[in-house]
Simulated assay, not measured.
Amino acid sequence: MAKEHDAILWGSAGDDLEGSDYSRLDERYGPLTIRRAYQRPDDGIPKSWKASNAGSDVGKRASCWSGKPDMGDVASGSLDERILGFLRSIPKSHVAFVTIWHEPDAKLKNETFSLSTYKDGFRRFCRLVKQVQGEGRPHLYTVQIVTTWAGTNPSKGRTYADMWPGDDLVDCYGADGYSHVGSKKSLWGPAVEFARSKGIPWCVPEIGYGDKGSQDVSWMNDQIDYMTSTPAGGKHTRCAFACWFDTAGPISVPTPGDERAWIKAAKKASRDYHFDYTRFAL
């Protein structure tokens, strides 16, 4: 039987943010053991985990959740009690990876917030999560989610090092990657190396085909091979989890969507590497 540090959880992000379509995805290419969920900017910090877009996961699968609260308010500390209440509402037995403002490199480019505001806010959020972890939540993890593009095409002020909030705050390093950016080491390598330099595992909150370039199923199989055989730092022996981005995006197509070969590849990965998510640990 596989050990918790050898596990990779397979999941997806579907069209419905609250997960009403997830049973259908699970039937098509499961068993899926994690779900990618996120809030809209207008949602702020939900009143509770149950009221969030990840609430439907409890008792069914692990969660990778991200919120989009006002980053200035997070940085100032005015949302501390709201965030603490939200985090403390997560059931202690539930495996949850949490973050705010995933893919900050894109938001920095668009000037949604400044680098200093992002780092101050994300650092504060991570410290609040660490506080709640210390209250007896061993299945709660912080994750920073960046794009692979920021690693393969680094720009001043938006590199992995620039966005890093500081050591001992991030439990797992996440990279969202798509086929038009690269494959295997050329795609994930910079994020894996950065995570390794920080002594933490890596994960893939979003993976899919880009809307440009080749869409041969061999790309999916190559990424599955890479993620299941490549460790970063820490105890984990491979990518901790990976979620197919099975919804239309601005630069991507639903993966695996309705493509039979893609569904077959995703289903094989879910079955070959199936692991009881309740036993998962970094």
Rank of each mutant, 00 (worst) to 15 (best):
H5N: 12
D6P: 04
G11V: 10
S12F: 15
D15H: 10
D15C: 04
E18L: 12
D21V: 09
Y22E: 14
D26T: 08
E27T: 15
E27V: 12
R28T: 05
L32F: 13
I34P: 09
R35I: 15
Q39A: 11
P41L: 15
G44L: 00
G44E: 09
P46W: 11
P46S: 11
K50N: 03
N53C: 10
A54H: 07
A54M: 15
G59L: 07
K60C: 10
K60F: 08
R61D: 06
C64G: 00
G67W: 04
K68I: 06
D73E: 04
S76I: 10
S76D: 13
G77K: 13
S78L: 10
L79I: 00
E81M: 05
E81P: 02
E81K: 11
I83K: 10
L84K: 05
G85F: 01
F86P: 01
F86Y: 14
F86N: 01
F86C: 04
R88P: 03
I90W: 04
S93A: 13
S93H: 06
V95R: 05
V95H: 00
F97T: 00
V98M: 08
W101C: 06
E103M: 01
P104W: 14
D105C: 06
S114I: 07
S116D: 15
T117N: 12
Y118C: 01
G121E: 14
R123A: 08
R124H: 01
V129A: 12
T142R: 02
I145T: 02
T148H: 01
T152H: 00
P154M: 10
G157H: 09
A161Q: 07
V170H: 07
V170P: 12
G174V: 13
A175V: 11
D176C: 10
G177T: 04
G177S: 13
H180R: 02
V181R: 12
G182A: 14
S183I: 01
S186H: 03
S186T: 12
L187C: 05
A191V: 07
V192T: 08
V192L: 02
K198S: 01
G199V: 07
I200V: 10
P205T: 06
E206S: 15
Y209N: 10
S214T: 07
S214D: 10
V217R: 03
W219A: 04
I224G: 06
M227H: 03
T228K: 06
K235I: 03
K235Q: 13
R238D: 03
F241Y: 02
C243E: 00
S252F: 14
P256L: 00
A261M: 05
A261H: 11
K264V: 09
A266G: 13
A269D: 01
A269R: 02
Y273W: 12
D276H: 13
D276L: 11
T278A: 02
F280E: 02
F280Y: 10
